[in-house]
Amino acid sequence: MTAAGPEAAPRPLAGLTAPPAVEIEGVTRSHRGRRGAEPVLANDGISLTVHPGEVFGLLGPNGAGKTTLVRQIVGALHPDAGRIRVLGHDITVDPRRAPRLLAYLGQDEPALRELPVGLAVETTGRLRGLSRAEARSRRDVLLDELGIGEVHRRPLLALSGGQRRLAHVAAALIGERPLLVLDEPTTGLDPVARRAVWAALDRRRAAGVTVVLVTHNVLEAETVLDRVAVLDRGRVIACDTPGRLKAMVSDEVRLDLVWRGAPAADDPTVALLAQSAVVSGRRWSIRLPREQAREALGRLTAGPALESLDDFTLATPSLEDVYLALGGRDRDLERG
């Protein structure tokens, strides 16, 4: 799988007459508070278009409104205002069409929890309209593709978190739909399993399937997405290819310093960096132009401040830096 470079354009449309895979216009949705508590505005006038055949990401920290948005796309929640079309069908008017157009993977699948893996996948396939024989043969292929064939008799409850998530992914992939809406499909997966999911998605994309993928993992966003919408507090703060988004902050780098004890406040370089550092525990994170970063690091490592420095890294910009540069305020995006 290739990462989209800065020059990457949205993938060509599957056909000029094909409708957008998802069209979201001005979608607003609040969660009603319990017992008279103030409603929380989870989506605030979101507009987005997902083109056919692309892997489109929704990136943002917890609470940004990503899950609320995808639950509206799949018809499980109704927007307070706005309109959502899926493959040309207005889901806000008739949400029952959504399940006949798309497959959805939620953050958890409690309905499948006690089922053996094979039966969970088979049943989901039958409920998507496959015959029992078709569902069984597709199930076998999918479990092998995701590398969980040997646990097909075990209930999901009894599996490790990673294997359970792979079983959820298999349930989402059975009964091929032209649109997959996946809410954090790789959370809790080890790198090998994560690559298995990415490869499975890539094969479907090659066959023309559109994928909408929620993530708060920056690496995943940069590796697999054709385009990404960055969400913060219910709004879209940017939407483009990962490459173009990163180009917005390409003249800057991130310097991370981890201190052993209290950093020497009288060191002029430390004092200068302290002004713009985002501190979490012993870690300082500073975004600054390349040249300045190089000089600051040189002075730190050559001077007495090195004594109290435990570790340091200098990194090129990631989507996390884009998020922060655009005014994002939460800091729980995952880097690994």
Partner: peptide, 17 residues
Amino acid sequence: GALRGDGGLDHYAALPV
């Protein structure tokens, strides 16, 4: 009650059943 409380009904909501 549990399916409704923990979001398990979403599984069925996203299936054409």
